[in-house]
Write a protein that binds this DNA or RNA. Sequence first.
RNA 1: GCCCCCAUCGUCUAGAGGCCUAGGACACCGGCUUUUCAAGCCGGCGACACGAGUUCGAAUCUCGUUGGGGGCGCCA
Length: 431
Amino acid sequence: MSDTVRVRFAPSPTGHLHIGGARTALFNWLFARHINGAFILRIEDTDTSRSTDDYIEAIIEGMKWLNLDWNEGPFRQTDRFDVYRKYVERLLAEGKAYRCYCTAEELEHRRQQALADGKTPKYDGRCRSITEPMPNKSFAVRFKMPQEGTTVLNDMIKGAIVFENNLLDDMIILRSDGTPTYNFVVVVDDIDMKITHIIRGDDHVNNTPKQIHIYKAFGWEPPQFGHLPMILGSDKSRLSKRHGATSVMAYKDMGYLPDALVNYLVRLGWSYGDQEIFTRQELINYFSFDNVGSSAAVFNPEKLLWLNSQYIMNTPAEALAEMVLPFVVKAGFIREGQYPNMQWLSKAVLTLRERSRTLVELAQSMKYYLVDEVEIDQKAGDKFLKPEGIALLADLKDALTGIEDFTVPEIMPPASVMPRCNGQLMASANA
RNA sequence: GCCCCCAUCGUCUAGAGGCCUAGGACACCGGCUUUUCAAGCCGGCGACACGAGUUCGAAUCUCGUUGGGGGCGCCA
């Protein structure tokens, strides 16, 4: 393993693993696997009021389903509060941070006021001048941001981005309840875990200069940054439930294969010439940030559906039979525990696989193999179930009764002696 | 309001100054094949946001405009 490259995926457990997060995780994972580095999973749960253990489980479940394995972790930031506190103390002692006695209400009021006045909301630094701790008063700790000069972010994807330091806020690094905030812990952890490349969403670009100053305050060398463009909904607004399912596991339930989702996601922002379908190994071999674009992408469920159908068609029937089984059970066509012979099921799958775009569709189409009563498609029935067609079917039934090994070679002889057109017969049989 | 980012078919994208009368994929529309449905094959529709530069030459470089996105929390 390379001892140089270490990347991480750091979701906050305030929701399920969603499409955007999954793509961020995927790019980190691909980069690590490509270069033989380490991929670390870290749970950013410093917002104790919104984080839940259930969501941590859900995120891990999503990662596992997508087959994105990690080398270290999952680490939880709530396990590391004492570490962060030490670093806060250090900044306080060195005069690089200060206690702020403004209340959350005051701050919120000022912020709204500034927004209403059309001004940039920014902390005015009024507590900077308080040098002696005020006893019996609760406080938050703020970081003293430099107010002059510029900060340059050399982004792996976006190139050089320059920020004016006087626009940077003295951000809170420790809340009045004693818990640290994101922009602070992310830096401490990334240093602590020796992260070399931070690959994350575009929405973090504006946080980066602030974080760079924290690195500098501690005398640490900032890692490389790469900011991935966002994934948008069909109306080009931020992807949300309005645009359909956003949770990764919802796609599992809808009968998508994890490899198909991965393949779809990777092509949102990354490309390799004209190639559309990749094996995992190809993805790992080919992946590079040189081929990552910098503009946002619209999530297109139709293309994902097409990719899924391609994956289903190319999955061996035996494997597909295993995959579809839970969906068949869920549809109620077979009972749990009363599983059919898997070899037989594979044969059934083989006949249906190329007309199914999802496992749900596949399971649905297997109904007539598994359930006694038969529903006839209206259109096909009208077309073929005419008296002569029915007569043919009756003949066929007689011919077929008694055949034990129901395979193509066994069926064809009796079927082909049927007078007139075979095609109509087959069509009738299908209907 | 301020800051940052982005800009090729409806969508995902190829394109690193001449290989571009702009290529591929999804979707859509035709045809072939299959007497169903699919799959497959062939074809069609369809884009360099706009305006100035730089250059012999620009989708590609620069600036501006417009449009879109993101950020401005004791959220992450």
